[in-house]
Structures are given as structure tokens and as C-alpha cells.
């Protein structure tokens, strides 16, 4: 037990050190790298908190996609970097900010220490009702049965965010392809990796989706993996991002939500409520929703990383 606490203590120190470095380091590119390291360390913390689902998500999205986004952006903003640094606030604002951050942290720490013991929990209620869903993974049961509306709205969040990103398209490029055209050596190492890895990635993603019903995993983790494979192929120049005006693309983006809504409304006559599942069919229906959502999530996440269209669609 004490050894475990020692390990956790070291992990916390490491996380905090990387976080401080990320905030204070002068070079933004370095901060982006720091954030990637931070995301991976945080995923370890999630494992230590017995939340493996969250760990997978944090590693894939926090450590992976967010860092890709950040690092790509810092490279493009390199030119303005020096000018921006000059605008760093003086010591007094920094002191005030430190006071603000410090007092919030201190207040939160006090609240954490004063949390009630034993802690209130919904675990018994989940355990009582999970049998009706036929699932073994309690987190998946919460996401797709007990609190399905949150998950539905979250799918809508992703679509909203993509719509918002696309709104930033320059008018002349509307309907065009997102991101730059990546030209790399077709016989280079990256192209080789981009040919070798996606088949493995797709198998792993399907596996992660499939076990998500009973073990840690699910559509977000699987979708992120697929998105990463697609992005790899795009960045290696093997394929191009599709023009955003394509019907099939729009269809894929909304497919997950449409399937979710359709099954949700089917629950009204068949199971007595919106987003309820008929008895005995909960698991197959949930897997169906997850499979459709995985594809939509993969495409949405990848397009969010690529950003608004930057060039016309040359057929």
C-alpha cells in the first residue's frame, strides 16, 4: 500500500511538473509537446483511479488528437511567436493571476479534503439495473442506457463543433478540401508506416468497440483510433481529405446520430419511453448504435483536426 502511495506520489509530482513546464515554457511548440506528455501521464493517473475507460479516452484524445492539433497550430504560428512573447504581462498582473489561481486551488483542496465519508455513489443503483441492459461494462451502460441523452447530445456537440469550424472557411474555398495537400516521399518511411499501420489499427478499433460492451472500450476510443489511422494516411500523402461538400461525407457524419435517434424513438412504442430499449434487445441495439457512432465519430474527429477547407476541390 505504501509502495503504491509512493508511486502515485511520484506520478502526481511528475504530472504537476510537466503541467508547470507547459504553462511557463517560452516556446509554444515545446508547450505543445509538453501537453502530449502531460496527456499520457494523466492517462496513467486515470488507470490509478480505476477508470480504464477514461484512461483510454484521455490517452487517445487528450494525449493524442489535442496534441496533434496544438503542435500543427504552433508550427503555423511560428512567425508571430516572437511578437506575441513581447506582450507577456508584467510582474503585477502575473502576481494577481498567481493569487487568483492559488486561491482557487487552495479552496478546491479544502473542499476535496472535506468531501463526505463514506462518499455518496450511484454504483449500487447501476449494479441493480445493469442486468436489464445485458452489458458487462458499467460505464457503457451509463453512457448508452441510463444517461443516453448525454451521449446523444455529445454526438450533436461534435457535429456543432464541425459546423462551427467549417463556418471559418474562406468563401472562395467553400466546398473544398480541408488542410494542406501533403506531399511526402511515396517510398519514404512515413508512407510505409501509413500503409502498414491502418489495417492493424482498424482491427484494433473494431476490437475496442466490440469489447466495449463488457470491458473498457467503446465507440469514442475506437473512433479516435480510426480517425488517427485516417489522418496518418492523409498526412503521409496516400490519400486526400475529401471535399466537405460531398453528400456521402455529410451522410457519414450524421449517421451515428440518426441511428441513435431512430432507435431512441423506436423505444417509444416498443419499450415505453424515448431512449428505452425493448427487453432482451438492449445489448444488440446498443452495439448497433456504437458501431454507427464509431464511424461518425472517426470522421468528425479527423475533420476537426484538419480544420476548415483551405483549397479548392481539384477533381
Amino acid at each position: 500500500m505504501n509502495l503504491a502511495l509512493l508511486f502515485d506520489g511520484m506520478l502526481v509530482v511528475l504530472i504537476l511538473a510537466v503541467a508547470v513546464w507547459t504553462v511557463t515554457v517560452r516556446d509554444s511548440f515545446a508547450a505543445g509537446i509538453g501537453y502530449a506528455v502531460y496527456g499520457l501521464l494523466l492517462a496513467l493517473a486515470w488507470v490509478r483511479l480505476a477508470a480504464v475507460d477514461a484512461a483510454l479516452t484521455e490517452a487517445a484524445i487528450g494525449g493524442g488528437l489535442t496534441s496533434v492539433l496544438m503542435i500543427r497550430a504552433t508550427v503555423r504560428l511560428r512567425a508571430g511567436e516572437a511578437a506575441a512573447r513581447a506582450a507577456t504581462p508584467g510582474p503585477l498582473p502575473r502576481l494577481l493571476a498567481a493569487l487568483l489561481g492559488g486561491s482557487v486551488a487552495a479552496g478546491l483542496a479544502l473542499v476535496v479534503l472535506a468531501l463526505p465519508d463514506p462518499a455518496p455513489t450511484l454504483a449500487p443503483q447501476v449494479a441493480e439495473h445493469i442486468a436489464t441492459t445485458g452489458l458487462g461494462n458499467a460505464v457503457t451502460a451509463v453512457l448508452l442506457s441510463f444517461r443516453a441523452i448525454d451521449t446523444l447530445l455529445e454526438a450533436v456537440v461534435l457535429i456543432y463543433a464541425l459546423i462551427a469550424v467549417w463556418t471559418l472557411t474562406p468563401d472562395r474555398f467553400w466546398g473544398g478540401r480541408p488542410g494542406p495537400k501533403y506531399e511526402t516521399d511515396p517510398n519514404g518511411m512515413l508512407a510505409y508506416l501509413a500503409r502498414l499501420l491502418p489495417p492493424i489499427g482498424i482491427v484494433v478499433a473494431v476490437y475496442v468497440l466490440w469489447v466495449g460492451a463488457d470491458l473498457p472500450g467503446g465507440k469514442f476510443q475506437a473512433g479516435t483510433l480510426l480517425a488517427a489511422m485516417w489522418l496518418l494516411a492523409i498526412m503521409a500523402g496516400l490519400t486526400e481529405a475529401p471535399p466537405i461538400s460531398r453528400r456521402w461525407l455529410r451522410g457519414v457524419l450524421v449517421a451515428g446520430t440518426v441511428v441513435f435517434l431512430a432507435i431512441g424513438f423506436a423505444g417509444v412504442p416498443l419499450a415505453g419511453a424515448f431512449l428505452a430499449y425493448p427487453e432482451g434487445f438492449a445489448k444488440p441495439l446498443i452495439v448497433a448504435i456504437e458501431a454507427a457512432s464509431m464511424l461518425s465519430i472517426a470522421f468528425t474527429l479527423a475533420l476537426l483536426v484538419l480544420g476548415p477547407p483551405e483549397r479548392r476541390d481539384q477533381a
Binding site: M189, L190, Y192, L193, L196, L197
Partner: peptide, 13 residues
């Protein structure tokens, strides 16, 4: 094996 592959590619780049 995956780590080998990824780190080989990354170092080469």
C-alpha cells in the same frame, strides 16, 4: 512491435 514501428518511423523523420 507497434512501439518499435512507431519509434523507428518517428526517429527517421
Amino acid at each position: 512491435l507497434l512501439v518499435l514501428l512507431a519509434s523507428a518511423t518517428a526517429s527517421q523523420l
